[in-house]
Design a protein around this nucleic acid. Sequence first.
DNA 1: CTTTCCTGGTTACTCAGGATGACCAGCGCA
DNA 2: TGCGCTGGTCATCCTGAGTAACCAGGAAAG
Lengths: 367, 367
Amino acid sequence: MPPSDHALDLPERISFSALTAQAIRRGIDRGAWAGALPSERRLSEVLQVSRPTIRRALAILVREGTLDGPRARQLRTIRAGGGARPSLNRRVIFLSHEQPEQCPPIGSLAFSEIRTVLERLRFTTEFLVCQERSLAAQQRKLAAYFARNRVLSYVLLSLNQELQMWLAGRGVPAMVLGSCHPAVRLPSFDLDNHAVGRSAAGLLLSRGHRRIAFLVPDSNGIGDLATEAGFTEAVRLHAAGDEVQARIVRHDGTPAGLRVRLDALLAGPAPPTGLLVAKPRAALVALVHLLGRGVAVPGRVSIICRDQDDVFGDLRPQLAHFSYDGRGIVRRLGRALAQLAATGVAVARPYRVFPRFVSGTSLARPG
Amino acid sequence: MPPSDHALDLPERISFSALTAQAIRRGIDRGAWAGALPSERRLSEVLQVSRPTIRRALAILVREGTLDGPRARQLRTIRAGGGARPSLNRRVIFLSHEQPEQCPPIGSLAFSEIRTVLERLRFTTEFLVCQERSLAAQQRKLAAYFARNRVLSYVLLSLNQELQMWLAGRGVPAMVLGSCHPAVRLPSFDLDNHAVGRSAAGLLLSRGHRRIAFLVPDSNGIGDLATEAGFTEAVRLHAAGDEVQARIVRHDGTPAGLRVRLDALLAGPAPPTGLLVAKPRAALVALVHLLGRGVAVPGRVSIICRDQDDVFGDLRPQLAHFSYDGRGIVRRLGRALAQLAATGVAVARPYRVFPRFVSGTSLARPG
DNA sequence: CTTTCCTGGTTACTCAGGATGACCAGCGCA
DNA sequence: TGCGCTGGTCATCCTGAGTAACCAGGAAAG
């Protein structure tokens, strides 16, 4: 018999499923979830582990009594005494009606920037998209989410007015990135969309356009409403003697819906010669659609986009648009969150950025 | 993008060999052996681990400097001062000729995804752009960087062939995200660009196109070269009896340069009726330029884009393109890096993804 | 109401990595 | 000289994880 070396620990032969079970157990202890676990597919994404492995891990936890089995196709519930130790977390949730790439206050570029900066500051970021059509459904979904998750603060991106006020009313910890309803008293980091709308209308009018339109999704985003207000205000101020026809054209936010509106506009009796388009994606869709229909840009229609996209400068015609440097906003947001994490409150002073106009060949004098 | 709960530790994916190395390391620290380790077969008995695993563990310890290699069939000796071991850091540098958003293997969307996943695995990520025009200048810059920085691994994104081979030759720790030169023996996570090129040409030919072209930047990216090879191969195989005219058109990577090439193509004697375009940005520029010139798409020219962009589906015509899910690649990359951090080496087996074709109305039969 | 999406449950298949056992050449030593 | 030990190598088997489909039930959106 060989002598045995006693000073040694044998390497632990532990299956990856068991390790995963440990990870989930720690998550439960830290209070990452309340009441019930996320779905298996969610866990598999979050933990970067395949679903069969997640299932084996869950089976272990059920067997040891940490979890209940799924009840009638419900999520698995966490057994009482799960140690829900409320620890100060640094979890930040971005809340929006749209995919992150489409949120106007911060273009696609800036969003990964935001994530990076916040993660440097040791915040963990998540994105929650709330795309239900009815307000009630949105509120139900969010209420369920609030009940099951503990977060430091929500960051509201281009939410519609009703939901923004509902959240503020419920006392959900939040700050607003993008435009903020004036009545909502939350820390906010805005673009001055009102000024942009006014400026855009002024640009079109000063180039001689007399039939202009603002194409905007009908989602009641507060920034969109502000742009709209600025747009009509500029028209009202200018149109003292002139005969100016300014329309606000709402579409349903889908590319197809936008094209339908565009076609209707152009087929109408007095088609506009100048367009302001909200959202970079929509501007691209509109440009390609018009060119594809043989409508010259800017020959028959000039286009200004309210928001930025870094492809705009590469195209011919270059899309005239408004642009700004998001880094200042990101820095402020990071500081506000750090303050909130440290002190429990954040200043509600709004921070405003005035985008600058980037001229492009898509804007010219009318035909 | 699905939200992810960051308040969690991910389960650690550590191989049993690495665990065994840990056990041996602890044994050394506790003075279980003096001067030299027991033989492999002894260790295998003592630790209750098979000998191949013991050997892998020993290789890890030799690599990290805890052990000397076996001297002339002697037992492995324990290095003096076994206390201070240079531990591998977890710093990862992304190295590319272009801005991250433009790197084709992973779209802008996927890149923030990659950062997030790697940072959750406790890697720190940085991006290093190497845009010098001359190869010598690139090498100088990188050599200076290597001399001053210790990193776990470089991740090469769409580097040109020369630089990729130079790095491999210098023994820089690296893996390739995107296409990899066949002679370069590095872990790589590829799209199968060759297959894409072949498939794209096949699609155009099978639709009846007989004059086709591949528009590609002249930067000698390995993926581009592979696409080109696949493209011409498909043409060669198909064109047995048929008369097919296939051109490779290189542009300088700028939108203006692309437009010049397009105009020259269309003004030529036998303009192509089908185009394959590399890079999503280039495809957008080409589409808008053609439509703006009154060239009907797909009426006069069909377009397929080799890469993906999520705006393609929203446009009319929809841009036919090749698409894939980058998450699998990100997962593999993360695992390879984790393995590298734990064991000091990563497998050099290439991982290949076959993008699937997303049909679109920009592709139709000619004329 | 209908439809859509998401849940848990289940399948078949691939593949990496560890276990096993055998073999080799070199070396020290009885 | 022959034995027993060392590290080095190989072929083979098998477990466990990954992947990608499916399915039915049920909740919720519209």
